[in-house]
Structure formats: structure tokens, C-alpha cells
């Protein structure tokens, strides 16, 4: 099906009490493309990402996944749990803290959603989980519990858990921020492979290299506002806005030695 956009974010606002975390956000996520959300801490990029699968409830505006409004049936009228769950199974999410279930092996972590959500028979789910784990290079770690895996391996299991569900959209919330520097590469490699296969991805990240080389568009946020959306080059190398320039200056200073 040919579509103009995978995710349509229109005039989205989000408040925590009197604090406005998202200010009138408009953003279009094109299908089959990688969109990186960058910006300083507390700028609202994670909040925006979490609104896309309604882990965070937005207060006004619309977020449509392939045309379908998520979280609400109509403005102000929240949709049923069932409807929300059905939409969520098509949206994979990878968290900063991996959030694997520590009492299950890698394979069980990946199979869990296939069994409980997709309703696959156990043997079938295990086989698919094994496939997904091989795809992220962990074919030999399937029987390990998360406590027996490195951070990079845990995050790859988390990616396998998401892709096993065959999502049409993947959300990444700072997937490498909790990792030791030497483990970042293995996770980014898996993400690049996914991007190469045409997965629609929204990635909140501080990895400017990834944004520069893999993203199709980069969105810069600050203080709850979407400052600019453009090609990576135009944001990262020829930024017009002073806020972006200042953010990148800080970033380069921190990474220079």
C-alpha cells in the first residue's frame, strides 16, 4: 500500500501539570525511512516518541499511525484498551534501559509477545524467536538470562523482541545511551541493517554519527518545541537556527579531546 506517511503528528500538546512538555508539535514520519529526533535533555524528544505508541498520553492534537488515530476514538474520547493493544502490536519499541524481563531467557523474552499477543503456539513462537535472535547475531545466547548478557547483547535481544512481532514501525528511545562506549557499535550495526531493509524507524539519539549517516531526516527539539526538520546534512552541518548551532557546539566540545 502506498502511503504519504507512516506517522502523522499534528498540533500535539502535552502537559505535566502546569509544565508544557510538548508545544504544538507537527511532524511527518515517512514510511520506510529513518527519522532521528535530537536535542538537549529535557527537550521533549523522548516524550514525543512515547506519545507515538501512547505510552505517554498526549493532551491535544492528533497522532495517526498509517492514518489511524492512536489513543483516542475522537478528540477527548480515549479508545478502548483492546483497540490500543491492537495498534501497539504493530509498533515495536526499544528502550534506553533495555527492559528485558529478567526471569526469562533471551529466547523466552522474544517468544513472549508472539505467544501472548499474536497467539502463536509455543513451538512456533520459539522457532521465530530463534530466527530473530540469529538475525541480531545472538544465535548462541538464546538460553541466557539477561543477567548473563552484556548491555549490548541485552539491547540486541530487545531489538529482536520488537522485530519478531513484525512491526510496521519501530521506535528507539536512546537505545545506546546506557551502553559502555565499546558496546554501542554492535547495537548501531543492527539498527543500520534494519534501516537498510526499509523499516520505518523513529530514533531518539545522541549519536550524531548515526543521525548523519543513517537518518533520512533529522528533527531538532528544544524546550518542547520542534525547532527544525530537515535532511541530516542541513541540520548537522549547515544549521540555520542558533539553538541548533549552540547544541552542536556543546556536543563537539564534549567529544573533542
Amino acid at each position: 500500500m502506498d502511503q504519504a506517511s507512516a506517522v502523522d503528528i499534528r498540533k500535539v500538546n502535552k502537559f505535566y501539570g502546569p509544565f508544557q512538555a510538548l508545544k504544538n508539535i507537527d511532524l511527518t514520519i515517512p514510511p520506510g525511512k529513518v527519522t532521528c529526533l535530537i536535542g538537549p535533555s529535557g527537550s521533549g524528544k523522548s516524550t514525543l516518541l512515547r506519545c507515538i505508541n501512547f505510552l505517554e498520553e498526549y493532551d491535544s492534537g492528533e497522532i495517526r499511525i498509517d492514518g489511524q488515530l492512536i489513543g483516542y476514538d475522537a478528540p477527548g474520547k480515549k479508545s478502548s484498551g483492546r483497540k490500543l493493544r491492537e495498534m501497539r502490536r504493530g509498533i515495536g519499541m526499544v528502550f534506553q534501559q533495555f527492559n528485558l524481563w529478567p526471569h526469562m531467557t533471551a529466547q523466552e523474552n522474544v517468544a513472549e509477545g508472539l505467544i501472548r499477543v499474536r497467539g502463536l503456539p509455543k513451538a512456533d513462537a520459539s522457532a521465530r524467536a530463534a530466527d530473530a535472535l540469529r538475525k541480531v547475531g545472538l544465535g548462541d545466547k538464546m538460553a541466557n538470562h539477561p543477567a548473563r548478557l552484556s548491555g549490548g547483547q541485552q539491547q540486541r535481544v530487545a531489538i529482536a523482541r520488537a522485530i519478531a512481532m513484525e512491526p510496521r514501525l519501530m521506535l528507539f528511545d536512546e537505545p545506546t545511551s546506557a551502553l559502555d562506549p565499546e558496546l554501542v557499535g554492535e547495537v548501531l550495526t543492527v539498527m543500520k541493517t534494519l534501516a537498510g531493509e526499509g523499516m520505518t524507524m523513529v530514533v531518539v539519539t545522541h549519536e550524531m554519527g548515526f543521525a548523519a549517516h543513517v537518518a533520512d531526516q533529522v528533527a531538532f527539539m528544544e524546550a518542547g518545541e520542534l525547532v527544525a526538520v530537515d535532511a541530516p546534512d542541513r541540520i548537522l552541518h549547515q544549521p540555520q537556527d542558533l539553538r541548533i548551532q549552540s547544541f552542536l557546539r556543546t556536543y563537539h566540545e564534549r567529544n573533542a579531546f
Binding site: R88, R89, F95, W101, G113, R116, R161
Partner: peptide, 23 residues
């Protein structure tokens, strides 16, 4: 129980009953 582990279950579309039972 870390909230993130419950959110991970919610994010793949698990029902609240299953989340209680399994996580």
C-alpha cells in the same frame, strides 16, 4: 518491579491480565 519492564510488555500489546500474570 521496574516500570520499564511493565512498559515493555504494554508496548508490544500485552493485555493487563497477562502483564500481571507473566511479569
Amino acid at each position: 518491579v521496574p516500570v520499564g519492564q511493565l512498559e515493555a510488555a504494554r508496548a508490544i500489546g500485552m493485555s493487563e491480565t497477562n502483564i500481571i500474570r507473566r511479569i
